[in-house]
């Protein structure tokens, strides 16, 4: 049986928006299709070996913890970049999208370097961007609506090598100015959308899993469909609570 190997980076520090729900969704949707999976937590001071993972997850944390993590990531950034070049799948959420970029300039003008697996840069804004977030997302030429929640002070702008994950229907997204949200570059996805993002957006979960299985086996799998009726109901309710008419 194929085992999909998931790395959960800094689960102790970066976990404040129900991030473990994303991991649970990835594992269960693999299990329900006959794949096995493993989750390896990697924290501060521990080594990251890019050759033993198919998918790498990093979630959202408090500013204070994010600084601790940013410093530790410096020691892992070369390994993470080599993983990204090798087609490893990344989902880095909230604080994660900022850490994946070139860097973050805080409100005092201090610069915190990022890992550089996404061509984007972030600086602190005056007020936090908080609320429901609804997108029209596009990946591999397919489109889908994504719904979740955002809560961030950073304003993120993409460079030419990254494309947005989607365009904003409701909420602020990357910066509250250009209607973009998230970033995609090869198999690296960064997004401000938590909620957590995957339980209500099975299309995105399955896209990540398709890529992760491909990374593991070298072939593109045909994922069998699952009964997503609860997921779809939860998504519809969230979209209507966000005030988006469809």
């Amino acid at each position: 049986m194929t085992e999909i190997r998931i790395c959960h980076l800094y689960p102790k520090e970066m976990n404040i928006y129900g991030d473990r729900g994303n991991i649970a969704v990835l594992q269960k949707r693999l299990e329900r299709r006959g794949y096995s999976s493993s989750v390896t937590p990697i924290g501060a001071g521990e080594d990251f070996n890019p050759s033993i993972f198919d998918l790498c997850y990093l979630g959202g944390g408090q500013d204070r913890d994010q600084i601790i993590v940013a410093h530790d990531l410096q020691k892992k950034s070369a390994a993470l970049r080599s993983g990204a070049e090798d087609g490893m799948v990344f989902l880095w959420v909230c604080g994660g999208i900022q850490l994946a970029g070139e860097g973050y300039t805080d409100s005092d003008g201090r610069r915190i370097p990022g890992v550089g697996i996404l061509d984007l840069d972030t600086s602190a804004g005056n007020r936090r961007l908080i609320g429901d977030l609804v997108l029209n997302a596009e990946l591999d030429g397919e489109t889908s609506t994504l719904v979740g929640y955002e809560n961030h002070a950073g304003r993120t702008f993409l460079g030419p090598d990254a494309t947005p994950l989607g365009s904003v229907l409701k909420g602020y997204g990357n910066n509250g100015a250009d209607q973009t949200e998230g970033a995609v570059q090869e198999r690296v996805i960064g997004t401000y959308m938590h909620g957590p993002i995957l339980p209500k957006n099975p299309w995105l979960a399955d896209k990540l899993l398709t890529w992760a299985i491909e990374h593991n086996t070298g072939g593109i799998p045909a994922l069998s469909p699952l009964d997503d009726s609860l997921e779809n109901l939860a998504q519809q309710v969230a979209i209507s609570r966000a005030g988006v008419k469809r």
């Binding site: 729900g21 969704v25 269960k28 339980p199 209500k200 609860l230 109901l233 939860a234 309710v237 969230a238």
Partner: peptide, 18 residues
């Protein structure tokens, strides 16, 4: 509740029998 289905997903993904 308003977000009953989100809660249902929370249990569903922990293998609570639907």
């Amino acid at each position: 509740g308003d977000r009953a289905y989100d809660l249902a997903l929370r249990f569903y993904y922990s293998d609570f029998p639907t």
